[in-house]
Design a protein around this nucleic acid. Structure first.
Length: 643
DNA sequence: ATAGGGTTAG
């Protein structure tokens, strides 16, 4: 009889229909009511598969059948209750634990502790730990407590407990470190992270892959990219997670080129990228305006069956939006079944940065109508959209609604948006008043927004005030010096221009050396003026010569406008751009090619240069600078301003 | 058999 039961159980456990599983298992076990064993096996399966509500249901059946839960039952049940965010059963379950006399079992205790942490009931969690003298000898209990405190932003409590462990002589293990280290990412604790790292090196845990990955992501989250890279390079074996951590860490720190290089290296190493990898890579494509790589990745995603991953969908929306392909961004967005706040933020921000503020506002209202609650991040997108589209009143209304309607405290980032909003509209006095009314200390971007507005509306006096403030806060941000210098220059104030220049020299600030880069086959190629470091330098310079030759061919034509362009090809753009374009021409050889070039100085002469070159070729150029997308085709250019 | 953990979008 009992053998028959066993087969029944295992068979049904494999069925996807859980209700059947429960019924069958319940029927099967009802004959041997007092032994918890088969119940526990079933509970483990349900909990493993994430079917938590079924697990709880099953537990109730178990009690009804008269079986007694034991120390092997509760960990599953407590975990299920925590996963379902049902605090009421949590207390009931705690009572059950006590009733069945399992409360001093270490595994049950740990499960109780972590359950209480999931419900943010830190006091209750600590009481479980404190209430039993044995728990102070157990690594597992400390582990649960430490990781709980760290996850609930109580790093200090976690640290104190870790110290207590050391003092008491309780051994720590890899899990202890994994729980504690993420807390070192809060500002000012990196040194602590480093000491922990030393400790781990001595303890022999360094060979634990998870521990190494944990430190890796700690460094990356703290912005210590170089340190992270060193650690990464030293890893004896790099798993997928290490690559992913490094790639998304670069991506979050704005090192988009490094992301693409690393993605390339990863493929060379024979590892297969997964969803997490692609999220990081796509977000870097967005930053570089590298739509073509983005498109390739989208194809790959479809092939790999990652088409439905919401993280990836959102990354795609953002990538297309930031590359200026609003049509595709919108199509991706519209096709998404379950749009979340991030999806909305991406599309709203996309329209905003390309000057379609009205669409952004419309979408935002639509989102609110749909019952999605906005957060601080989306307000930044909406406010920026309003200011770039000149929707001043609308923006002010939204800003007002943040606190009143949605109980969101504006951060200084929101203030800088509104200063920008007012400033662009020429309401400089109000902008300044807003800054003075801020509940927190205004930061660089806030004063910078005012300075930018002064440039538009030619207010030299206010500009000087804003500059004094912003330079105090960000003395090494060269952009502000350039801005003020331009303001003086617009006002024909030669003395002012000179003063700024002297100031820059005294502080040792130099304009960044000009560089340009082109993306090609998943890699980004960087060129500086006079650069000969590229492996294809020879060919590139040859191509450049051919470009010069074009001018001769061109000069034969009798057309004034063309002659002017020819002169520009000849004399204008800086060397780094020429190299980048020569490289691009060298490699592009299909008619549908779109060359995406990110260029920091696609202004004036360089703009005309690319325009002239595009007359000679069948390719399209998309050049992205700090403020616009420039789309060159057949000698014409259309610009999509962000602003 | 059972807890605790490393990588993901705006």
């Amino acid at each position: 009889m009992s053998r028959l039961n066993l087969t029944l159980c295992t068979k049904t456990a494999l069925l996807p229909q859980t209700n059947k599983t429960i019924a069958a298992a319940a029927a099967a076990t009802s004959t041997s009511a007092s032994t918890g064993g088969k119940w526990n096996t079933e509970l483990r399966e349900l909990s493993k598969q994430g079917q938590y509500s079924q697990a709880l249901f099953f537990y109730r059946q178990m009690l009804r059948s008269g079986a007694t839960p034991n120390a092997f039952t509760f960990p599953f049940i407590l975990k299920s209750s925590a996963a379902l965010s049902l605090p009421l059963p949590a207390f009931q379950l705690h009572c059950h634990v006590i009733k069945s006399g399992c409360h001093s079992e270490p595994f049950v205790q740990t499960a109780l502790i972590s359950m209480y942490f999931k419900f943010c009931l830190l006091g209750n969690a600590y009481k479980v730990f404190d209430g039993s003298p044995d728990s102070r000898k157990l690594t597992v209990c400390y582990n649960a407590l430490i990781s709980g405190y760290v996850q609930k932003a109580r790093f200090l409590n976690g640290l104190l407990l870790f110290r207590e462990m050391m003092v008491q002589g309780v051994p720590f293990n890899a899990i202890t470190i994994l729980g504690l280290v993420p807390g070192c990412t809060i500002p000012g604790h990196l040194d602590l992270g480093r000491s922990l790292f030393c400790l781990v090196l001595k303890s022999g845990l360094k060979s634990d892959l998870a521990v190494a990955n944990c430190f890796l992501s700690m460094y990356l989250r703290c912005g210590s990219v170089d340190m992270a890279r060193r650690l990464f390079d030293e890893l004896p074996e790099k798993g997928l997670i290490a690559w992913n951590a490094m790639i998304s860490g670069y991506s979050q720190n704005g090192l988009a080129k490094e992301v693409l290089d690393l993605y390339h290296d990863m493929q060379l190493s024979g590892l297969c990228p997964d969803e997490v990898t692609f999220v990081g890579v796509l977000s870097s494509c967005a930053n570089l305006g590298a739509q073509r790589i983005g498109l390739e990745i989208e194809e790959k995603l479809e092939r790999r069956g990652f088409g439905c991953n919401p993280f990836l969908k959102n990354a795609l929306i953002s990538m297309y939006a930031r590359c200026g392909n609003l049509v595709k961004a919108r199509a991706t967005f519209d096709a998404m079944m379950h749009k979340n706040l991030v999806s909305w933020t991406a599309i709203i921000g996309g329209y905003g940065m390309h000057g379609h503020g009205e669409v952004s506002v419309e979408l935002f209202d639509q989102m609110i109508q749909g019952g999605i609650k906005p957060d601080k991040v989306i307000f930044v997108s909406v406010l920026t959209a309003c200011s770039h589209a000149g929707l001043t009143q609308k923006g002010l209304d939204y800003f007002d609604s943040m606190e009143k309607k949605y109980n969101l405290k504006p951060s200084s980032e929101h203030y800088s948006c509104v200063v920008d909003l007012l400033g662009r509209a020429g309401r400089l006095v109000e902008a300044r008043k807003l800054i003075e009314s801020m509940p927190m200390e205004p930061d660089g971007p806030v004063w910078g927004a005012l300075l930018g507005a002064c440039k538009i509306h030619k207010d030299v006096d206010l500009a000087e005030l804003a500059f004094d403030k912003v330079v105090e806060l960000e003395p090494r941000n060269i952009g502000y010096y350039v801005l003020l210098s331009n303001i003086y220059s617009d006002a024909d104030n030669e003395e002012g221009v000179l003063r700024v220049r002297v100031m820059m020299r005294e502080r040792g600030l130099k304009k960044d050396p000009g560089y340009s880069y082109v993306e090609y086959k998943g890699r980004t190629h960087l060129f500086m003026a006079g650069d000969r470091s590229h492996p294809q330098t020879k060919e590139i310079y040859a191509e450049l010569k051919k470009l010069e030759a074009l001018k001769i061919k061109y000069g034969e034509q009798e057309n004034d406008e063309l002659k002017r362009d020819q002169a520009i090809v000849n004399t204008a753009a800086l060397h780094s751009e020429r190299l980048a374009i020569a490289f691009a021409l060298l490699h592009a050889n299909t008619e549908t090619d779109i060359l995406v070039i990110k260029n920091l100085r696609i202004c004036g002469d360089c703009h005309l240069f690319v325009k002239a070159v595009s007359k000679f070729v069948n390719y399209q150029f998309v050049v992205r600078d700090a403020t616009r997308f420039h789309h060159f085709k057949g000698g014409t250019c259309s610009c999509n301003d962000y602003w």
